[in-house]
């Protein structure tokens, strides 16, 4: 009977294959393809026939300036609100205008989030913000309508800052629509984007005087993570109602099949 020893031949074959592959890789200088990472694009709109590409940095600069003017300083979590509003606008425009460049005066944004940084972001994009007269030729519409249907008429930074004390994850809802066609899309941020009791901690750190140093540090980590998510995650990871593009069912079925096969084999043998 021939005994199947783990022999020299198999090892030699592996060695030859390895050195052959190494030689090919070395000579051709082949490089692994870069992993595709999410890239935060720019909000592209037309203002009186001129195409504008609005970057998040441009929006941030405007928002910082206006908040500083009104309050003297900027709340530490401001960036997170700008990023969230900016991402929501990008998604809303791509869903409503489906790749077409919208005209500024055709854009209407209704936000449920009574907060100044996100409001200024939307105002900058729609051209309705303070001191924008020289920055735009035409403007769209921006409103803040609370969850209970109340229209917030006073959109001053100070007033919105006061209102933002009691916001929750449910308030992160924005309706972006085309004034001319009436088509609209509601962008809703997933609740699990925010850690448990994030807004309770925010109220304590930003508005209260009782937060400990540890709580302050925890809040900084948390809002930074959320901000990173708004700037780096795929749409389906942060917004409700979007399907993950990859065909995951095949992977799940394969995974379950492998687990079952192992269990059955273990039980049989």
């Amino acid at each position: 009977m021939k005994v199947g020893k783990i022999g020299i031949k198999a090892l030699v074959l592996v060695l030859i294959m390895f050195y052959a592959l190494a030689a090919i890789a070395w000579v051709t200088g082949v490089e692994a393809p870069e992993e595709e990472e999410f890239e935060l694009g720019e909000v592209t709109i037309e203002d009186n026939g001129t195409e504008l590409a609005i970057s998040i940095d441009e929006v941030s600069e405007y928002v910082t300036e206006k908040i500083e003017d009104a309050m003297g300083s900027v709340p530490e979590d401001m960036e997170m609100f700008v990023s969230g509003a900016y991402r929501a606008t990008l998604l809303g425009i791509s869903e409503v205008w489906e790749g077409e460049v919208p005209s500024r005066d055709d854009i209407k944004i209704v936000s449920s989030l009574p907060e100044p940084a996100s409001a200024l972001c939307f105002q900058y994009i729609t051209g309705t913000g303070p001191s924008m007269e020289n920055l735009r030729a035409e403007n769209g519409v921006f409103e803040i309508v609370l969850q209970d249907g109340t229209l917030v008429e006073n959109t001053s930074v100070q007033h919105l800052y006061e209102l933002s004390k009691n916001i929750t994850a449910d308030d992160w809802k924005f309706e972006i629509s085309s004034i001319s066609t009436g088509e609209s899309f509601v962008v809703e941020v997933k609740g699990d984007v925010f850690p448990e009791d994030f807004f309770g901690l925010r109220e304590k750190v930003v508005f209260g005087q009782t937060a400990s140093e540890k709580e302050g540090q925890e809040f900084t980590w948390e809002w930074s993570d959320i901000n990173d998510g708004f700037q780096g995650f795929e749409d389906y990871e942060i917004f409700e109602g979007l399907e993950e593009p990859a065909p995951d069912s095949a992977t799940i079925v394969a995974l379950i099949a492998v687990i079952l096969a192992i269990v059955i084999l273990a039980l049989i043998i």
């Binding site: 005994v3 199947g4 020893k5 783990i6 022999g7 269990v263 273990a266 039980l267 043998i269």
Partner: peptide, 24 residues
């Protein structure tokens, strides 16, 4: 000695299957 493939496979599987039955 050179290990024999069948023996290695049988022994490894016996130990692994025993582990699965106990650990999972």
């Amino acid at each position: 000695r050179s290990p024999i493939m069948k023996n290695v496979a049988t022994k490894t599987w016996a130990r692994v299957s025993g582990f699965i039955k106990m650990a999972v």
